[in-house]
Amino acid sequence: MGKRTVTVIGSGSVRVSPDVVRLDLRVGHDAADVAEALTGATRSLTSVIEAVRAAGVAESDLRTLDVSVNQRWDNNGTAVGFTAQQQLGVVVRRLDATGEILEAGAAAVGNALLVDQVRLDVYARDDAEQRARAAAFANARSKAEQYAALAGAELSEVLGVSEFGATPVGAQRQKGFAADMAMAASAMPVQGGDLDVTAAVNVTWALWTSRKKRKSGHRKHRG
Rank of each mutant, 00 (worst) to 15 (best):
R219P: 05
A199S: 13
G10C: 04
S216Q: 15
V21W: 00
R63F: 12
D194Q: 14
V21C: 06
Q87M: 04
T39C: 01
A108S: 09
L114H: 10
L150M: 12
K220P: 04
S216K: 15
L95M: 10
Q85L: 12
G165R: 07
R93V: 09
S162H: 09
K215W: 05
A179I: 09
T83K: 11
G28L: 02
I49L: 10
G12T: 02
L155T: 03
T167Y: 02
A107Q: 13
N139T: 02
D61K: 09
S68M: 07
N111W: 07
V27F: 03
A138Y: 05
H221Q: 13
R125L: 05
S11E: 15
E154H: 06
A136F: 07
Q85V: 11
S186V: 14
V190E: 01
V118D: 00
L38I: 12
R63K: 14
D33T: 15
P18M: 06
A112Y: 10
A32Q: 12
A128N: 00
V122W: 05
D24M: 06
D19G: 12
G28Q: 12
A132N: 02
E103Y: 03
F164R: 15
A199H: 07
V8P: 01
E145C: 06
V67T: 11
A151I: 04
Q117N: 15
A106S: 11
A144C: 09
A54L: 12
T167I: 07
K220W: 04
L88W: 05
A41W: 06
G223Q: 14
D33K: 06
N111T: 12
L113R: 04
V115P: 04
D24W: 10
Q146H: 08
V80C: 12
T204G: 01
A149V: 12
A128Y: 00
D127Y: 09
A149S: 10
G12D: 09
A140F: 01
V109R: 04
R219C: 08
R133C: 02
A106P: 00
E59L: 09
V122R: 10
T78F: 05
L45M: 14
V20D: 00
A37W: 01
R214Q: 14
A128D: 00
G10K: 05
K220L: 15
E163K: 02
E157Q: 10
M181R: 11
T198R: 14
V20M: 02
L62M: 14
H29C: 15
A112E: 11
V52Y: 02
A153F: 05
D116F: 03
A185C: 05
R22Y: 02
V8E: 02
D96K: 07
A206M: 11
W73S: 09
E163W: 06
S156L: 09
A179K: 07
S11P: 03
A206N: 11
A79R: 11
A178N: 09
S210E: 11
K212F: 08
K3D: 13
A55K: 00
M1H: 13
G81A: 08
W208R: 15
S44G: 03
G223H: 15
S162T: 12
